[in-house]
Nucleic acid binder design. Structure first.
Length: 717
DNA sequence: GCAAGAATTCTTTAGACAGCATGTC
DNA sequence: CTAAAGAATTCTTGC
């Protein structure tokens, strides 16, 4: 009877996925007891069908009237899974929800759903908000769990899983990972069985380019034209095979330069229809902003020639267009920074890692880990189109060739390790653990940390204990927690830890306690401060790091600005010869960029003057908005003066919309942003009242849209 | 005397999660 | 403490 039910689930999953049978990895997982609630760590290549395991276990969990939480490292990935699951399983009565960042924060509504797809951070924040439905979880799927290895975002995932393990000891855990060396360690930590496999539905072959050939491992070599540069030769070879490829490069500039160079070559391989379609897309990409920036123009030009560069400085809309055009086969070559390696699902035939080194400040340029190069190769070989996929490295010399082979092809993948001992992440998570009452004393806190992956690997905890000591001291000094010594027989044996209301709120607001303190302390002197200096204060927070780079040209502007406002900084500014002076200049530059935005400088002007990219500015603005919101929330608790709250509220609005104060009223209207508000204002419609008096036709004339004018009128009434 | 091309020096360097309440050009 | 590509600048060379 039980077997029958299990088969039913498997049949169902296979059918909706249009598969005939389970692949070896999946069969093994069944054998290991995934349907019996057995926890598993699955370490296998991208596209080895790991998601399907989550679906099988998820259906079983549904049958048991429990919830599945599916944790993703990226919002884009979460959204993709959500769409996919919804399409496949909603018809069976499953309720599937997506809960990520700026989508919806209401927790209670999630209790009605069976499958909940989250980003790691979102779920962490849901725990901080003490969502009550968490107890109904029967299955936790953690996708791309090797993220634990990541310096900045790994600790969140690690702590999150440690918490879940503790509050849901009976829940099944399914940890999905790329191929890693020490999957057993993870299994050991999570008390889960380990399934290791290198199965791929489409085989992947490695190759090394040198001189005029690509030496392939396990396939016949390719011989290329000798009179072309390596990149060109590889591109020609690929296009002649009627395939596409992605280059991975170390910097944005390299990616842009190569795309531009290659577009001249690729253009000759395009047929008329493709040229026409690409021209259309090129125009769309160029028009992504009202005034195209230099970068937009360059990208548009590349696209015309059948190539595109891809990195985080692009606008989301541009990225999507490139992804779509690549999937359609219109764009033949994408040159990318590592942005594409992790996350976005862009299947292709051949991936070429040209730069196997990356610059790390303080370390110079270092070799990429094998794990990362594998990630870049990971999506090569599309099941529907290709019989195999290729991952290629470029050697610069004979020596280089054998080094690359030794290290990346024959070499072993690295172990992953915990990054939790990093002071700043420990600081943030300690406050959260204390706030949630998971750790009511210092010993409890340390014991909790012993339950992390770090703890499972390290016997010696003295380093962490020292750090915790310092963190407790700081958190108390900043008034985020209260402590009380526990004495026995006259000696101190432990320390009670309790959050203050402020500390609890800071933890919920998901900001670094250091930043929160910085803002609180700085704003005590708000009376001397002005817009620029408050923005500089904001730019000092960890959330807005790294600060933009300074060019010689910036230096003049920024120093002049600092000099003019010397008396108005709400914090003490470093001396010119101090070691942190340069960082201060960069923070001031960030503030100056924000100020320009608030002063209604055009985006193009800002990008050109400060060498900012559209993608960067938008993400910084979003973060600033969140910081301003946090200030207001903290202000409610600390009873900030009315004047200050008003000032912050105004600044928040102005920065959000990018407008001067006089437009704040207009911009509140739906359909009106900074550009249209300015047009209305300059045409005499200086406020809502004036708009009320005006006729629809008059407004329509100014905005060049009748529909819009009517929409506005409707809102006013 | 001048300009193209070579050599040298200078400059710069990947990514993207979170709160909250609704919509840009 | 480590590199390397591209841009900017200076130097060389050929006429």
């Amino acid at each position: 009877m039980k077997k029958l039910k299990e088969n039913e689930i498997i049949e169902k999953v296979l059918k909706v996925n249009k598969f005939k049978s389970l692949n070896p990895v999946q069969k093994e997982a069944i054998k290991m007891g995934i349907l019996d609630g057995e926890s598993l760590v699955v370490s296998s290549p991208t596209s080895s069908g790991k998601t399907l395991l989550a679906e099988i276990a998820g259906l079983k969990t549904f049958k048991n009237r429990k919830k599945m939480v599916y944790l993703c490292p990226l919002v884009a990935l979460a959204r993709e899974k959500y769409d996919d699951f919804k399409e496949k399983y909603e018809k069976f009565g499953l309720k599937i929800a997506l809960s990520v960042g700026n989508y919806d924060s209401a927790d209670p509504w999630l209790s009605k759903y069976d499958w909940i797809i989250c980003s790691n951070e979102k779920f962490d924040s849901l725990i901080r908000h003490e969502a009550n439905w968490i107890s109904e979880i029967g299955l936790i799927v953690a996708d791309e769990i090797h993220l634990i290895n990541d310096e900045s975002r790994g600790p969140t995932l690690e702590i999150l899983l440690t918490i879940l393990k503790r509050i849901l000891p009976k829940a099944q855990i399914l940890a999905l990972s790329a191929t890693i060396k020490n999957a057993e360690d993870i299994g050991n930590w999570l008390r889960a069985k380990v399934l290791k496999s290198d199965f791929r539905p489409v085989p992947l072959f490695y190759g090394i380019f040198s001189k005029n050939k690509i030496k392939m491992f396990g396939r016949e070599d390719y011989f290329l034209r000798e009179d072309l540069a390596p990149e060109e030769a590889i591109v020609e070879n690929t296009i002649l095979m009627k395939k596409q490829l992605i280059f991975f490069l170390s910097t944005r500039r390299n990616a842009e330069a190569l795309a531009e160079r290659l577009s001249k070559l690729v253009y000759h391989f395009l047929d008329e229809k493709e040229i026409k379609e690409l021209e259309k897309i090129s125009k769309e990409i160029e028009r992504a902003l009202p005034v195209p920036t230099e970068q937009c123009k360059r990208l548009a030009n590349c696209v015309k020639g059948g190539t595109a560069f891809y990195h985080s400085g692009l606008l989301i809309s541009q990225r999507e267009k490139i992804e779509k055009a690549y999937k359609k086969g219109l764009i033949k070559v994408i040159t990318s920074t590592p942005a594409l390696a992790f996350g976005i699902n862009l299947p292709n035939f051949r991936a070429v890692v040209r730069d196997v080194k990356r610059y790390i400040p303080g370390f110079g340029s270092v070799f990429l880990p094998v794990l990362e190069v594998q990630q870049m190769f990971g999506r090569s070989g599309r099941p529907q189109y290709d019989k195999w996929g290729e991952g290629i490295l470029i050697a610069k010399s004979k020596q280089d060739e054998s080094d690359l082979e030794e290290f990346y092809i024959k070499g072993e993948i690295e172990e992953i390790s915990s990054k939790i001992s990093n002071f700043s992440s420990l600081r943030m998570h300690s406050l959260s653990l204390i706030s949630n009452r998971f750790s009511k004393t210092k010993i409890e806190l340390i014991n909790f940390l012993k339950g992390t992956f770090f703890g499972s690997k390290h016997e010696d905890f003295s380093l962490i204990e020292d750090e915790i000591e310092r963190i407790i001291f700081l958190l108390e000094k900043w008034n985020f927690i209260k402590t009380k010594e526990v004495k026995e027989n006259g000696g101190v044996i432990d320390k009670k830890l309790a959050p203050t209301i402020l500390g609890k709120r800071v933890s919920q607001l998901y900001i670094d306690p250091l930043s929160a303190n910085l803002l609180i302390e700085g704003l005590k002197n708000f009376k001397v401060a002005n817009d620029f200096t408050i923005l500089t204060l904001l730019a000092k927070t960890t959330e807005l790091k790294p600060s933009p780079n300074l060019s010689a040209k910036d230096l003049i502007f920024v120093e002049e600005m600092i000099f003019k406002n010397e008396e108005n900084f709400p914090f003490s500014i470093p001396d010119q010869f101090d070691e942190d002076y340069e960082e201060f200049l960069r923070e001031a530059k960030m503030a100056l960029i924000f100020l320009n935005w608030m002063e209604e400088k055009s985006e193009g002007e800002i990008f050109d003057n400060f060498k900012m990219t559209p993608g960067e500015l938008h993400s910084r603005l979003e973060i600033s908005d969140w910081l301003f919101y946090s200030i207001l929330e903290i202000g409610k608790i600390l009873n900030f003066e009315k004047e200050l709250m008003k000032k912050i509220r105004k600044m928040r609005m102005r920065l959000y919309y990018g407008v001067k104060e006089e437009l704040l009223n207009l911009v509140k209207l739906r359909g009106i942003g900074r550009i249209r508000a300015r047009i209305l204002f300059d045409s005499g419609f200086k406020n809502i009242k004036k708009l009320k008096k005006a006729k629809v036709e008059e407004i329509a004339k100014v905005l060049k849209s009748k529909a819009l004018a009517e929409k506005i009128k409707k809102q006013i009434e």
